[in-house]
Structure formats: C-alpha cells, structure tokens
Design a protein around this nucleic acid. Structure first.
Length: 150
DNA sequence: GCCAACGTTGGC
DNA sequence: GCCAACGTTGGC
C-alpha cells in the first residue's frame, strides 16, 4: 500500500466538500509527473488532503483511493476548462482516480509545521523548493510523522 | 534540440 | 497583488 498527497484549493473543493459528496473524481490534473503518480495509485492507497492557495495552507484530512486510474473524461469535453484537443479516447493523455473521504484531521497540520519537521520528514516533494505538483508521493514514514502532529 | 517567451502554481 | 519557480510551447 502506498501513500499520496493531493492539493486542492479550498475555494474550489475543500475537505468539507469531499466529506459532503463522499467520493469525488480527481480530474483536471494536467501535469505529466502528477499524471504518472495518478496512474500508480491503487485502490485503498492512503491520501493526505492538502489545502493550497488559502489563508492556512496545510494537511486537513485523510482520504483513500477508490478506483484505479481511468481516462479523465474532462479532457474530451469541449466545454470543460480541462479540454485537451490533443487527446483522444483512443489515446488518452490524462487520467483521474476516484477519491473517498475518510476523515478530517482534528486540526490543520500547517505547511510551516511540516517545514519545521524537514529533518524528520526527509526528502519530501511538498516542502521542496519551488514545489508545484498537485499530486505527490508520501512515504509510510512521512505519513506517520505527519499524522502524529495532529 | 536549443532557448526565449509565456503561462501557471502557490506561498506570502 | 506580487513574484519566484518551473513546465510548456513554438520558432529557428
């Protein structure tokens, strides 16, 4: 079993929104590295839910992978912001997974705290300089360390 | 295949 | 709103 972190802007889709709907297709990812991570996901992998571009960036909840990767339908949708004219159903470029709500953390584990723990966390894409990935891997040790802060 | 221009991400 | 980082695009 692997672990991941996904970022979401709470104004767009918050942990409370995920709680409300229960399951959400994680679509619209348009970065090749993030896409490759999505394709590596397996059912029941653990997901840290992270709020970005907001007053208090940080980990706010736990989710899990509900489906293996499937072609992201928004890439074929002409009216979608995520439409990609270079993609086709025969050769889809972008993938999505379904994500299931597990729980909210008791408090926000802030980005600042994670930076302070850089030594304990080791190499972690989230706190690497210039990090822009919206989907990234988390090791079992990092998962444990982060949730222990809660 | 290089590289400048441009667009996007995301913290602050 | 600013700006650094960095991925993508397209001309050559």
């Amino acid at each position: 079993m692997k672990y991941w972190l996904v970022k979401s802007e709470p104004d767009e889709f918050s942990i409370d929104a995920l709680k409300r709907v229960g399951v959400e297709p994680w679509s619209g990812v348009r970065n090749y590295q993030a896409r490759n991570y999505l394709r590596q996901m397996k059912v029941d992998d653990g997901v840290l839910f992270y709020h970005s571009s907001c007053a208090e960036p940080g980990v706010v909840g736990v989710a899990k992978v509900a489906t293996a990767a499937f072609p992201d339908p928004t890439q074929f949708d002409l009216r979608s912001d995520y439409h990609d004219p270079k993609s086709s159903p025969e050769e889809p470029r972008w993938f999505a997974v379904d994500v299931t709500f597990v729980r909210k953390l008791k408090r926000v584990v802030a980005l600042d705290e994670l930076r302070d723990l850089a030594d304990a966390l080791g190499d972690f894409a989230l706190i690497r300089r210039g990090n822009r990935l919206s989907v990234l891997p988390v090791t079992a040790a990092q998962w444990k360390t982060i949730l222990a802060l809660e």
